[in-house]
Design a protein around this nucleic acid. Structure first.
Length: 505
RNA sequence: CGGAGUGUAGCUCAGCCUGGUAGAGCGCUACGUUCGGGACGUAGAAGUCGCUGGUCCGAAUCCAGUCACUCCGACCA
């Protein structure tokens, strides 16, 4: 066990340990913000690369909008959208003056600027300018950006004041087309979470009280963490004509009539990294899915005597040439040779704690045998996790092996998800009993811990209070509905909607 | 924004009650032995004890004020 705290002992503390031991990020001196370090930011770069390709494949183009949004833009929306979040960074001054050695804000702005918490309003304003005719539609854009929400209880990757994300914004001529777009992008997220992050998710619609304010419908992907809590990993909103009306996005349709357009928005953030950690990491540290690993293979030279240096390094150099030609997941293999002046055992364990999918050790013995030793992260504690093999075999199989390891990670996470959705709870009493316990680590292969319940919900607004008191949320209304009728798990009234109940991050 | 707690070496912390030369472990540096499942020995560098003021011959330690951070709640597009 490399972690000071195991998942079983204290799950939240274990999470913090993984982030710091894997050297992914640390708290910044700037409160509530984080410094993403090479290994953590490298994951984000991989997420960006893979997802950006998919966003472009589906016809979107990247734009960039300002980080500062005039207060009046939020005013427009606040007039008709209730429950608007108030935690925002507000820029009120434009310079600093030195008053007796103390710097003080000066020159108040005529209109305060809000540091974007999300960009619907400012993008809608541009849409209004750009859209005149049905021939201008649709506009399909995306932006990679930082956003700020003044969170009071930050946690690395899961909730920080500043975070990085991607926000797609589209505008369409018809409701059907906008709705289709919303669902299409949700599917892109589902596919990405499962295939790139090896994180299986449930897809569905948010209940009324969990919707994005201003949306007609909010759809989401929900993942299950190893403590049975849910993590909203991505959202996609059908905004109807709400934003079009407040920003005045109108166009002339094919019948020569003036009409409000239909908009959507959808996003995922650096929170996905927190999800990946809580989905895959173990008591030895991080476990990175090979598809998004900044380095899929790390080679650590084992040199005991200085006179072996040249022998080992030229062997590795030769291997490097051959690895450069290899591919995994349809991309060039990403590998690193760790030549730092440190004890090789320490280097090996450092990379295993970081979750590099494969770590190769190469010493004089391997040179003599034309071989190498490879350790696979997900099998760290089993005998088959350490293999001595011919270098030829390694080079020719590494790509396929990484793809295979990725599949195994997904399969493991999927079986945990499926085994921990209770569907046999049908009364409010049984439901209350189930959630009477707090969440804890779902040990691999075990069942019966607190996680998700799939059951009936009557939809009454009064149920919001019951959920709040129980600290439980409705994660989503899954797309696949049974259509049966039964007692609501909160009120006991007749209900037909199937929903997913869980505690959440 | 409520409730509690903590600020001492890069990190984790002891010392404070009962005032008297600034401590430990880890990390770091050098040398040697090591190196393939997480090393060891020897030597060394490193701190305005959060900040300001007060009491005192003397303050990390006592008193007052102040700032910051952490945890638990509330909040969370």
């Amino acid at each position: 066990m490399a972690m000071k705290t195991t998942r079983k002992q204290n799950y939240p503390e274990w999470y913090q340990n993984v982030v710091s031991e894997a050297d992914m990020a640390e708290n910044s001196v700037s409160p509530g913000c984080m410094v993403m370090k090479a290994w953590g930011y490298g994951l984000w770069e991989r997420i960006q690369r893979v997802l950006d390709d998919k966003i472009k494949e589906t016809g979107h183009e990247n734009y960039y909008f300002p980080m500062f949004i005039p207060l009046s833009f939020f005013q427009k929306e606040a007039d008709h959208v209730d429950g608007f979040a108030k935690e925002m960074a507000v820029v009120t001054h434009s310079r600093l003056v030195n008053e007796e050695g103390k710097l003080k804000p000066s020159s108040p702005l005529e209109e305060p600027l809000i540091v974007r918490p999300t960009s619907e309003t400012i993008i809608a304003d541009s849409f209004a300018k750009w859209v005149n005719s049905y021939r201008d539609l649709p506009i399909l854009l995306n932006q990679w950006a930082n956003v700020v929400r003044w969170e009071m209880r930050p946690r690395l990757f899961l909730r920080t004041r500043e975070f990085l994300w991607q926000e797609g914004h589209t505008v369409h001529a018809s409701m059907q087309e906008a709705e289709a777009e919303t669902v299409k992008m949700l599917e892109v997220y589902r596919d990405f979470a499962e295939n790139a992050l090896a994180m299986p998710v449930l897809v569905g619609r948010k209940p009324e009280h969990e919707k994005f304010p201003g949306a007609i419908d909010t759809y989401c992907i929900e993942a299950m963490m190893q403590d049975g809590k849910a993590l909203q990993a991505g959202t996609s909103h059908f905004l109807g004509q709400n934003f079009a009306k407040s920003a005045n996005i109108k166009f002339v349709n094919q019948n020569n009539e003036l009409e409000y357009a239909y908009t959507t928005s959808w996003g995922v953030s650096t929170r996905l990294i927190g999800g990946t950690i809580m989905c895959h990491a173990d008591d030895d540290g991080m476990v990175v899915p090979p598809h998004i690993a900044p380095y899929q293979v790390v080679i650590v030279p084992i040199i005991k005597k200085p006179e072996d240096t040249e022998k080992v390094m030229s062997y590795i150099e030769n291997l490097q040439q051959r690895l450069r030609a290899q591919t995994a997941f349809g991309e060039k293999l990403r590998f690193k040779i760790d030549t730092r002046d440190k004890a090789s055992v320490d280097k090996v364990w450092e990379w295993l704690r970081k979750g590099a999918p494969m770590v190769c050790e190469i010493g004089p013995r391997d040179v003599d045998n034309s071989g190498l030793m490879v350790k696979e992260r997900i099998y760290l504690n089993s005998p088959e996790g350490k293999k001595i093999m011919p270098a030829d075999e390694f080079v020719t199989t590494v790509g396929r092996r990484l793809e295979d390891l990725q599949k195994q990670m997904l399969a493991k996470a999927r079986s945990r998800l499926e085994a921990n959705i209770r569907t046999d709870i049908t009364t409010p009493e049984a439901f209350a009993d189930y959630f009477a316990h707090s969440n804890e680590w779902i040990e691999d292969g075990k069942q019966g811990k607190v996680a998700f319940v799939r059951g009936k919900w009557c939809g009454d607004t009064a149920t919001e209070e019951i959920l709040k008191a129980m600290k439980i949320t409705i994660r989503c209304i899954p797309f696949d509905q049974s259509g049966t009728t039964g007692p609501c798990l909160l009120t006991g009234k007749d209900a037909t909607l199937d929903v997913i109940y869980a505690r959440s991050y």
